[in-house]
Design a protein around this nucleic acid. Structure first.
Lengths: 339, 339
DNA sequence: AAATATAATACAATCGATTGTACCAATAAT
DNA sequence: ATTATTGGTACAATCGATTGTATTATATTT
């Protein structure tokens, strides 16, 4: 029941606990024969190193903190999977926290992770995060920070792994234009959030390239839930005229719109073509299947974690607003394919 | 950069660090006035409690370990969300690990969690877990264990939160029978795995109840991937005659089968009705939508975590092979609805 | 064999917070 | 005024492992 310690091993072998510690850590200050005796006795006593003590002494927790808005969202659970995979290989633990899109919770979580002396934090911020004091605190305390996907600007001394959202928005919109769309609506979330700002920028620059007018009335800001998409699609049909394309900044809203249009007997892509963003699993199986921009969560997670791991090995060189930009991949499916 | 400690606060105020500690923990052995001075100074110095030290002293980590086969599977990410939610409320951290269906990894993970002195472990085991030594070790070391969903039998001193798989299998099969199916195939995974054994048992007893023969040749064991479903559906169509129903022990294989049948021009549910298990998000949107048995991951996660938390508060009373059985919920959709 | 070098181990401080016991003050009781 | 009580602090040990330094035992050199 009670766990064995190095001191008990030491006493049993009549040697000092420091020697036991070194033996267990395979130090070359201990003779091979002694090591063997220690290891055998350790096994006999069912010894497991107390990492709490070890971490305290070394003042490191060998734990990485991860903060996401919501674990059960596919994109985030895939990033977590990628992060965990890399961390495990390198011998780190991963503490997962979800902010549930609440800034207050995010702040508390960060403080808690700091109190736990995590070696670094990987974070995708909430949609509401404007005040970044809790984030700047991190590197001020010497805890490196890496953003992935949802990030904030203006903080130096961090790493970032981002999808090239501008390009993603551009390609999505351009694709719709290539399919003959002339009046393209854009569903987005508050433009203070970097990723949505960037997708919007891509949308806008695609319109510009093809000499289509940018019309503020065609841009709808919401929380991008399925219900928002459903509602907005209704609005478009009722109140606007001649809309022939929708570019939604995420798949959920796109799927909601798709639902509404199907139910209303409006043909997709015939009457209105739709492109989403994120490549949710659902998007591939719905009918018509949804054209979308893929962002490989697993890959982003791996890269973000590696950025941190590299930092530990190579020092300051890597984290200094170092940004890894991932190219977006447009996945063309039925919802937009007119030819 | 360097973090402040209680000793620095103590020195600054010219009092003892034990008083500071008690003040920070709001002990009634410290005068209100002193508490205020300590708190103010703590804020001034940017103090954050070092949980590593605190945990070591109390020999508890205030961390709960969670082990799942794969984080990115929807069911598991929802359970994690539920677990994290409860744990957060109670002031615990959650370390998440994925076994990736590898027993060896599972063993290593358990050992690591023990070394980290987690206060308890919530686990859903791999499909391959037969040898349970690493699990019995847990409670031998005083670390309580709670299984959810995928469990093993024969270990006392654990809690369990399970879906009533027997009943789920029964209801799924009975439903198919009610829809007029006479020759029902069952897709399952190795029957050494409890949940699959139980779903199979439900299948079998439903057949018995309605005097339908149980035929081993109608039971197909695989890993239940989408591809397995696709392949097996082909086999059924080619090699068997008169199959008019499929009960798959998970949705993935059911979706694979659905794909094959659609592609082959076989009507679902007209020719063959299909029922899955788990209610994956995809299952609701595919056409025809898939009838399935719902298991609320979030709810299971919450319950599992609460079982552990109750144990901490109420001692041994709660964990002693205590099993919480959740009733399954059959969700009837198009893939099986004949009338 | 003596002197030096080196390998192996022991000693002791430390990481930061917690907690039982001891102590001193101020107040209450006699 | 003296003793008993108790509220508020200080002292010191402790959790278990790590690590710089000191010491002893062995090996090498002269």
């Amino acid at each position: 029941m009670k766990k064995a310690t190095i001191h008990e091993i030491a006493k049993a072998l009549n040697i000092d606990s420091s020697t036991v510690s070194r033996a267990l850590n395979d130090s070359d200050r201990v003779r091979a024969k002694t090591k063997k005796r220690v290891l055998d006795k350790a096994r006999e006593l069912g010894y497991t190193r107390n990492l709490l003590a070890s971490n305290l002494r070394r003042n490191k927790s060998n734990t990485i903190g991860v903060v996401v808005p919501r674990i059960s969202r596919y994109f985030f659970s895939s990033t977590i999977a990628g992060i965990e995979e890399m961390a495990y290989q390198a011998g780190y633990n991963v503490i997962i926290c979800q902010s549930l899109e609440e800034v207050l919770r995010e702040q508390k979580i960060i403080r808690n992770l700091m109190a736990n002396r995590v070696v670094g934090i990987l974070i995708s911020v909430t949609m509401q995060t404007r005040d970044t004091a809790h984030l700047t605190e991190c590197f001020e305390n010497g805890t490196p920070l890496v953003f992935f996907d949802r990030h904030v600007t203006g903080i130096k001394q961090t790493g970032k792994v981002l999808l090239d959202d501008v390009r993603g928005g551009f390609e999505a919109t351009e694709h719709l234009i290539h399919q003959g769309c002339k009046k393209i609506v854009h569903f987005t979330a508050p433009l203070e959030v970097e990723i949505y700002k960037n997708r919007h920028e891509g949308y806008r620059s695609a319109l510009a390239k093809y000499d289509l007018p940018y019309d503020e009335n065609l841009v709808f800001v919401s929380t991008l839930l399925k219900e928002d998409g459903y509602r907005l699609a209704g609005k478009i049909v009722e109140e606007l005229d001649g809309v022939d394309g929708i570019f939604s900044a995420n798949d959920f809203a796109a799927l909601g719109a798709l639902n509404y249009l199907k139910k209303s007997g409006i043909r997709v892509p015939g009457d209105i073509a739709i492109v989403g963003f994120s490549n949710e699993p659902t998007s591939a199986v719905i009918e018509p299947s949804l054209t979308t921009v893929d962002q490989s969560g697993t890959e982003i997670g791996r890269l973000a974690c590696n950025l941190l791991l590299d930092y530990f090995e190579n020092g300051n060189t890597l984290i200094n607003d170092k940004t890894i930009m991932i190219p977006p991949k447009l996945i063309v499916r039925e919802s937009s394919k007119r030819y």
